[in-house]
Write a protein that binds this DNA or RNA. Structure first.
Lengths: 230, 230
DNA sequence: CGTGTGGTTGATAGAGATCAACAACGGTGG
DNA sequence: CCACCGTTGTTGATCTCTATCAACCACACG
């Protein structure tokens, strides 16, 4: 049963190394929350609610410009967390979060979580490591957006997202993938088509949501802006 | 004397709350380093050297694309730190760092620093807070680059960088400011000119490196993409 | 079946990059 | 004092990538 607080907590990498007593403490403070697809979980500027852990489903974390344009920062899948940053820094949510599909989350409310943090050194260290990963993730994001053109971004994304079998299974809609790469869905579509025509990628027959990498070397060159098609 | 390890350490906000004994420990492990303007401090991909604290001068942290283009992530001024992320996450440096002017830095080498971290809960908490700020900073950066046009980015930057007197003193060259905003120096120049022509900003006579904000409301509107000139 | 959502393709337009010339300095050395 | 140079910043002309607008297809679902 994936809706049990303990089960969700145990599936969370961020808190994997939290020990017996301390874990019970987290279980005790946790609240299970369910969201229907499309429900807004929190808005930019909201008071920090605490740490969310996704148990099932998919959560879209995104920014919105004054003119209404969205930019997806992250698609959070089960076992991962969101809103930790605001919870720990104790400042307003820097982004929006909504359920991209029906989702079950665990919320560790801010106050008791911070109390636990103050007393649990292991938890603190663990979080520190995860924050370092976050910062690295963002550096990668900035690097992508500022230094690469559309083809480069798509190529890099595919190389990173591919399993060892060389197949990328999209976690969500192409629309979201495009937004994450700071492209419109139209240019993403065109770019994938060009990569397909060049023979660098292919779609296993019938599967719309899968992409097979056919030439990683070439893709690597494209991601470095050295490809044949720029 | 700003080259003394203790003095630099005391001027560092990140470590402000570190107490007597623990501070001595940091002082003991610290190495003072001097860099001439233009010297590379570390490169992307290098093993994590540890935590750097700027004592004097200015350090440019930047990314480089395969084609040689640079993007400035951060200009680090005295009292601030860099490379903490790699040091704590224990992964290769995600960016380059070079001395933008002659600079004196303090290095807390990775190993002893991590040891201190494992034993000092207060230090850990402090770092956690500062990491949260880092992540927020990056969210802001992504927000800027993806959701705003050139004028919007410049306007927001000016509003954030201005002192209470409404004057922005550029810490470095316009070139760096442009790169930080993901613009070429040419478009930055043009954008500033347009803002000047509209009467939103002005340069106090004779001062090339200062910008005075004349109409914050209007600048705010421009930063939200609602300005008169888009 | 209509209707809606997601995705593809085509035509056009616009923001900003790029290329190029030049002005304003500040040093350096004769 | 002035000629020379390197750096920084400004301005102009052009080009290119990507967004935008619009039509259309495929598929799912009531």
């Amino acid at each position: 049963m994936d809706t049990d607080a303990r089960t969700i907590l145990e599936g969370c990498r961020l808190l994997a190394s939290v020990s017996g007593d301390q874990r019970e403490r987290l279980v005790a403070m946790a609240e299970v929350r369910r969201y229907e697809r499309g429900t807004m979980i929190f808005r930019q500027g909201d008071a920090p609610p605490g740490v969310f852990i996704v148990g099932a489903g998919l959560v879209r974390v995104f920014l919105v410009s004054p003119s209404g344009k969205q930019h997806v920062l992250h698609l959070v899948s089960p076992g991962l967390t969101f809103a930790e940053v605001a919870a720990i820094g104790d400042f307003p949510c820097p982004a929006f979060a909504e359920a991209a599909s029906d989702a079950t989350c665990l919320l560790l409310p801010e106050r008791p979580f911070q109390a636990a943090l103050r007393e649990d050194h292991a938890l603190c260290l663990q979080l520190l490591g995860s924050f370092a990963m976050w910062v690295r993730h963002f550096v990668g994001l900035v690097e992508d957006i500022t230094l690469r053109d559309a083809a480069g971004r798509v190529a890099r994304f595919l190389l990173e997202a591919a399993g060892p079998d060389g197949v990328v299974r999209l976690p969500s809609l192409k629309k979201d993938m495009a937004s994450r790469l700071n492209l419109t869905s139209e240019t993403l579509s065109r770019t994938l088509r060009r990569l397909t025509d060049e023979g660098l990628i292919g779609s296993p027959a019938g599967t719309g949501a899968e992409i097979r990498l056919l030439d990683r070397d070439q893709l690597g060159r494209v991601s470095d802006g050295l490809g044949p098609n720029l």
